[in-house]
């Protein structure tokens, strides 16, 4: 198998193009690949369709930086602090420019990825009935369940196949085999549905480490396009067993981005004025070290012996 270890800027240059549908933040509030969000902004990508159920402030950041043409998902804001100021400015005032919104619920979004991942023509669901999401997003179809007696109403969700899914994982080998643990949101479906998968590994380990526990593999290496070794790529989001959430950082972002000018200053300070994620980690300094999970609550080993 070919080695896929590249730098994050190389991976973004190679796998994210203007206008692409990009999944960043498939695990909802945890393991959001903020380092990739920042690099996409530095490279000035435009017209992206950002797809995520809930991606905390990652989508708000990309919208404010002018990278987004469309939002496909269930929720955009700041999970612990409230509304997303850039999202509001874009939708309410067209600043920095107008956005298209493809409204979903969490379940319909997950089912859209599932349909693409499993090669299904659509996913029939019993959710969204009675919701105006069916009005504001005309892509859904209302149908009768052909297997019901009384014309049971069913919503048909079209497949969603992202151009690229970018995931943070605790550990990966250079071939793109990886382990992920903790709640995973729609990460598995988003990976299997995507044309390309880019992994941001907190740690790069020998292949035998991953091979020792294949049940913990989120997506196998043969479906992965690139692996980047980026410690704390999820900051300020948390990652099970690795990093606590930097809630003060989210709160600071919320306060400083109320006005467009404040956001631009924040962006200069934390993204555009820093060369890469190494510089970002250096700027965080001791506060990042405080967030590192140092305790141990190890799972019991699982025996895979054949004889």
């Amino acid at each position: 198998m070919e080695e896929k270890l590249v730098s994050l800027p190389e991976a973004i240059r190679a796998h994210v193009s203007d206008g692409d549908c990009v999944v960043l933040g498939a695990c909802l509030e945890a393991a959001i690949p903020f380092a990739a969000t920042y690099e996409i902004i530095r490279q000035g990508k435009r017209g992206l369709d950002v797809a995520a159920p809930i991606s905390d402030t990652s989508s708000d950041l990309l919208i404010g930086a002018g990278c987004v043409g469309q939002v496909t998902g269930a929720w955009v804001g700041n999970v612990s602090s409230g509304l997303g100021h850039n999202y509001r400015r874009a939708v309410e005032h067209g600043e920095p420019h107008a956005l298209k919104i493809r409204d979903h619920s969490n379940l319909s979004f997950g089912m859209a990825l599932l349909a693409a991942a499993y090669g299904m023509p659509y996913a029939p669901v019993r959710t969204l009935l009675g919701s105006d999401i069916l009005t504001s997003n005309p892509e859904f179809r209302l149908a009768e369940n052909p297997f019901s007696n009384g014309g049971e109403k069913t919503v048909l969700v079209p497949p969603l196949a992202p151009d690229v899914t970018i995931l943070c994982v605790q550990r990966a080998d250079v071939f793109g085999n990886c382990h992920f643990w903790g709640s995973s949101g729609v990460a598995a479906e988003a990976a299997l549905a995507a044309t390309s998968v880019v992994l941001l590994a907190d740690e790069v380990v020998p292949p035998e480490v991953i091979a020792s526990d294949p049940s913990r593999v989120l997506v196998p290496g043969y479906r992965v396009s690139a692996v980047c070794h980026v410690p704390a790529a999820c900051h300020p989001a948390p990652m099970t067993g690795r990093w606590q959430r930097d809630s003060a950082f989210f709160d600071d972002y919320h306060k400083r981005t109320r006005e467009r000018g404040g956001f631009l200053a924040w962006l200069d300070e934390w993204v555009l004025g820093l060369e890469d994620h190494d510089a970002y980690r250096t700027k965080l300094g001791a506060s990042l070290e405080d967030l590192r999970i140092k305790g141990e609550a190890l799972s019991a080993p699982a025996n895979y012996a054949a004889h």
Binding site: G77, G84, D103, S105, L107, S131
Partner: peptide
Amino acid sequence: PGSGGAAD
């Protein structure tokens, strides 16, 4: 912000 899982 939107639905999240509320609609479901």
